[in-house]
Every structure is written in C-alpha cells, then in structure tokens.
C-alpha cells in the first residue's frame, strides 16, 4: 500500500476487521463506503447535526469529525449493531411504539446517542434526556415523541446497560 493509506484493525458491531483505508478519510466514510454500512448518515459533515453518530468504545461520537485512522484498535458500534439477528433492541421497539420516527434520517444517530447515554445514566430526568439528544437534530418530529420513547425505555429494564 502506498503512503496515503493506513491499515486499521478494529471491531465493528462485534466483528473484528482489518482493512486498508486512505489516511485522510473520515470514520463516517470508512463505515459507509468501505464497510458498506449505510445506516449512519451524513447530514452536514461538520459536526452540527448528529446524523452520523456512532459509538466508539461505548461513547457516542460524530463520525464525520473523526478520522478513519482513529478507529484503530477501537470497539465501534453502528445502528446495524443495535438489533440482534431479527430481534429489535427494546429501545428501537419504544421508538416504534411511541411514533418517534418520521422520515428516519436522523433516527440511527439518535438511537446511537440515546443508547450510549442510557448505558451511563440509570435514571435521567426529562431535562437530562433532552440535553443528551440536543446534538442530534431532527427537522420532522419536534423531538417530543422521541423524548417520550426514551422515557418509556427507562421504564423497561432491558433498555439499559447496552444489550
């Protein structure tokens, strides 16, 4: 490989991968174009919208602001890793039950942020939830049904602590 590529090794949605990537591309590019996981979206490319949110070592990050090379040795989760086989994650169930999804473009990013947030926060109040998702813009829903879904998830043991 020429000098403009780097080899990275990381875990994505539980699977170990090794791949060569151009050194200048973003983590979002690696995920979408190299891994072919198109659930993570680009809404702005500059860290303003949250549509590209993924989890890196359990923390929600804007993958458009991160270099692909920084994924090396990290544990990455994208929306594709949230449901197991055919079974939806309970948080996804709550989003459906509470009508939190309209166009669905912001949804993967929102679910990634929320999922990471709930791992660290046992019992957040409405205001904390609101703050946690304030980096994920949604132009369709006005957020209310999203926040309701997250509150509903808090009532459900299985939504916490990751899986």
């Amino acid at each position: 490989m020429n000098q403009n590529t780097v080899q990275i090794e990381f875990t994505i949605n539980g699977k170990k991968v090794t791949t060569n990537i151009p050194s200048h591309v973003t983590a979002l590019h690696v995920i979408r174009e190299i891994m072919g996981l198109k659930g993570s979206k680009e809404g702005c490319g500059i860290g303003e919208c949250g549509a590209c949110t993924i989890q890196v070592d359990d923390k929600a990050v804007n993958s458009c602001l991160m270099l692909g090379a920084q994924l090396h040795n990290r544990d990455v989760m994208t929306i594709e890793g949230l449901s197991k086989e055919k079974k939806l994650h309970p948080l996804q169930e709550k989003f459906i039950e509470n009508h939190a999804v309209q166009c669905g473009f912001c949804t993967p990013g929102l679910l990634m942020s929320t999922h990471a947030f709930l791992k660290e926060n046992e019992n957040p109040d409405r205001q904390e939830i609101t703050r946690a998702i304030a980096g994920n813009l949604c132009r369709c829903t006005g957020y209310q049904q999203i926040i309701t879904s997250i509150e509903a998830a808090l009532q459900d043991e299985s939504c916490r602590g990751g899986e």
Partner: peptide, 10 residues
Amino acid sequence: KKGGVEKVKG
C-alpha cells in the same frame, strides 16, 4: 407505521 421497523434499523 409502515416501514417503522426498517427505519429504526437504519
């Protein structure tokens, strides 16, 4: 909603 399951899975 129609398509809701697909949407939450990205």
